[in-house]
Simulated assay, not measured.
Amino acid sequence: MHFDHAPAIWSQYPELTAGVLFVEGIHAQASVDGAVAQFNAIAQARLEGVLSEGELPEIQAWRRAFQRMGLKPTQYRCASESLLRRFRKEGALPSIHPLIDLCNAASIAFAVPVAVLDASKVAWPLQVRHAGGTETYLAFSGETEHPEPGEVGFVDAQGNAHARRWTHRQSGLSAVREDTACVLIVAEAMHAGAAADVRKLLDALAQAIGQAWGVAPRVALLTAQAPRFALQP
């Protein structure tokens, strides 16, 4: 079992920083209200300093990446931008599951996309790579989609696409549910200073997860020179 980014991804996006956490012992009864409130306060303070979330350097970097992928960045937004837009308009994010609530709050605090996958729903290994045209994606609506050839996504050994358009939208197949116990969390950034910021994000999440679930996540920062994260449940 392992997770990595294909060499072509590192080659085409050398500014990429990727961080991962692997966590066992997750359940839906944990309380994360304190940590979520702290992250929300950070996000609120950052939004008060700009006209819109699109001005944040973390979001601008992902918009440039989406343009390089041939996507309109205001039509297909990275997950952190979408969450920040909702947070700015509504003043809060909906509660889904304690771990999702925590990771969404961390995502808006750092303006960095954070993917959370139920490890039991992935046919390992899992890789961020370009689609070949045969992959399948299960939408939250229950409909099956097929990513276009060349589209970047999280793809497993059985050709399941666990995300579309890279950091735009995750799959319902590996979404965290009430019975989820083991997860892979991936944070990816492209902006200047991304390595330091992603490390801070990982540390903050690891601390909050430890406090809420009493478990110690395995944490790693991936690079082109050390791109693989091996999982041993």
Score class of each variant (00 low, 15 high):
Ser31Ala: 15
Met190Ala: 05
Ala123Val: 12
Ser141Cys: 10
Glu143Val: 12
Gly91Ala: 09
Glu148Trp: 05
Thr144Gly: 08
His168Leu: 13
Glu143His: 14
Glu151Ala: 08
Gln29Cys: 03
Phe39Leu: 06
Leu93Cys: 04
Ala30Val: 01
Glu148Ser: 14
Gln207Thr: 14
Leu231Tyr: 04
Asp197His: 07
Gly132Tyr: 06
Gln211Lys: 13
Asn160Ala: 13
Asn104Tyr: 07
Tyr76Ile: 08
Ala196Pro: 05
Ile185Gly: 00
Val215Phe: 11
Val219Arg: 13
Asp4Cys: 10
His162Arg: 11
Glu55Thr: 09
Lys89Pro: 05
Glu55Leu: 04
Ala37Trp: 07
Arg88Trp: 04
Thr144Cys: 11
Gly19Lys: 01
Asp101Ala: 08
Ala106Pro: 07
Glu58Lys: 14
Gly214Trp: 09
Val219Pro: 01
Leu126Ser: 05
Glu58Gln: 15
Ser31Tyr: 06
Val219Met: 15
Asp4His: 10
Arg165Tyr: 06
Gly49Cys: 08
Val32Asp: 00
Trp213Met: 04
Leu93Ala: 03
Gln75Gly: 07
Thr17Gln: 05
Ala139Arg: 00
Glu178Trp: 03
Val176Asp: 01
Arg218Gln: 15
Ala45Ile: 02
Ser171Ala: 12
Ala230Asp: 14
Ser174Pro: 03
Ile185Trp: 02
Gln211Tyr: 07
Phe154Asp: 00
Cys78Ala: 11
Arg218Pro: 12
Ala224Val: 10
Leu21Glu: 00
Val152Thr: 08
Leu231Met: 11
Lys72Pro: 09
Thr144Phe: 15
Arg164Ile: 11
Ala105Phe: 01
His5Gly: 03
Val215Thr: 12
Thr17Trp: 00
Phe229Leu: 05
Asp179Val: 05
Ser141Leu: 09
Gly210Thr: 07
His146Tyr: 09
Glu81Val: 01
Glu188His: 04
Ser171Arg: 02
Arg129Gly: 06
Ser171Asn: 04
Ala187Gly: 04
Tyr137Ile: 08
Leu184Cys: 06
Ala119Glu: 00
Arg218Gly: 14
Met190Leu: 13
Ala204Phe: 02
Ala61Asn: 01
Ile9Arg: 03
Phe66His: 08
Val122Glu: 01
Gln211Ser: 15
Ala37Phe: 06
Arg86Cys: 09
Leu184Thr: 01
Pro73Gln: 04
Arg46Trp: 07
His5Val: 04
Ala8Cys: 11
Ala192Ile: 11
Val152Phe: 04
Glu58Phe: 13
Ala204Asp: 12
Glu15Met: 10
Gly210Asp: 10
Gly210Met: 13
Ile96Leu: 15
Arg86Ile: 06
Gln67Val: 14
Ala163Thr: 12
Gln60Arg: 08
Ser171Gly: 07
